[in-house]
Amino acid sequence: MYRVSWALIRDGAGDVDTPPSPLLDAALASRRSDRTAREPPPGFDPVRYGRMGVLDQFSLEGHVAVVTGGGRGIGRGIALAFAEAGADVAVAARRTHEVEAVAEEVRARGRSAFALGMDVLDWPANDRLAEATVAELGKLTIWVNNAGGNLDRTLRPLVETSEEVWDTLVDLNLKTAWWGAKAATERMSEGGNIINISSTAAWGAAPTTGPYAATKSAMINLTKTLAMELAAQKIRVNCIAPGLVPTEMLFETMKVDEAAVESMGAQLPAGRAGRPEDIGAAAVYFCSPAAAWVTGQTLAVSGGPTGTREM
C-alpha cells in the first residue's frame, strides 16, 4: 500500500509534508471560537454538537453592516435582510432621500440605522462612511460593495466606448470595491466580512455592456485575493453574482419595464426573475457564523445554472 501523500489530505493542493504554520497554535486554540457555544441538546455529543443550533447560526446579531448603493434595488434588499437577521445597518448612496427612507425601514425592523448621502466615486467619502459608521453604530463588521452599474444607462459596443466612460465604469464597478475593502478593513479590528456584488454577466460575452462585465469578472478575482490576504485578520471575503433582478438600474439601462423583465424571468430555468430578497438571503448566509469556513467564494444567485465557476 502506498503511504498516503500529504497532498491528498489537503485535497490535492500541491506540495507534500508541509511544515506546520505559525497560525496553527492560534487556530487550534480558537477552533470553534467563531461559533458561540450553547448548551447541547440532550443526547448530543458535546464535543461535536456543543455549539449553537443550525438556525441560530444564520443570525447576524451583534453585527454592524455598511451597504453601499443601499438606497434601492439589490442594496436595499441586502440592508433590510441584514436588519431582519439582527444587524444594525449604515445605508449609503447618492440620493439622500432614498437612503434615509431605507434607514427608516431598518429602524422599523427594530434595528439601529444610519443614512449617509454620498458618492462612492468621491474616494475619501468612503473612508468617512466607515468612520461615521463606527461613530454612530459602535463598530463595523460587515461591508457590502454593492454600488455599481451603468452610470449613464447607455448601451455601447466596447470599441465605441469613450475613454471617459470606460474610466468611469471601471472606477464605479471595480475601484470602489478595492477602496471599500481598504476603508472597511482598517476598522474591522475584530474581524468581519466583506461582500462583493458581481453579476452573472461576469461569466460570458456581454455585447454592449462590455466594461461592466469586465469589471464584474474582475470582482470575482478581487474576492479571491482579498480572501487570502485578509484571512489572518479574520476577515472573510465572498461574492454574490446576481442574475436577472428587476431593479430601476436594469429598467433604465436595458430600456425595459417590469413586465418585460418578468416575462424574461419566466424563461429562466427557475421560472421567475430574481428578487432583492434572494440576494439578501445569500448575503446573510455568507456573513453569518453558518459560513464561518467559507471565504473567497462567488455564489451565482441567478435562477439557473451559469456554467463553470472556474475562472
Binding site: D11, A291, W293
Partner: peptide, 27 residues
C-alpha cells in the same frame, strides 16, 4: 460547516439558486 451550507441551499432562502456548487473550504 457543510451542514449549514446544505441548510441554506435547501431552504426557501435559496429558492432562486440552482445549478451551482458552493465551495466550503476555509479559502
Amino acid at each position: 460547516d457543510i451542514a449549514a451550507a446544505v441548510v441554506y441551499l435547501s431552504s426557501p432562502a435559496a429558492s432562486w439558486v440552482t445549478g451551482t456548487t458552493l465551495s466550503v473550504t476555509g479559502g
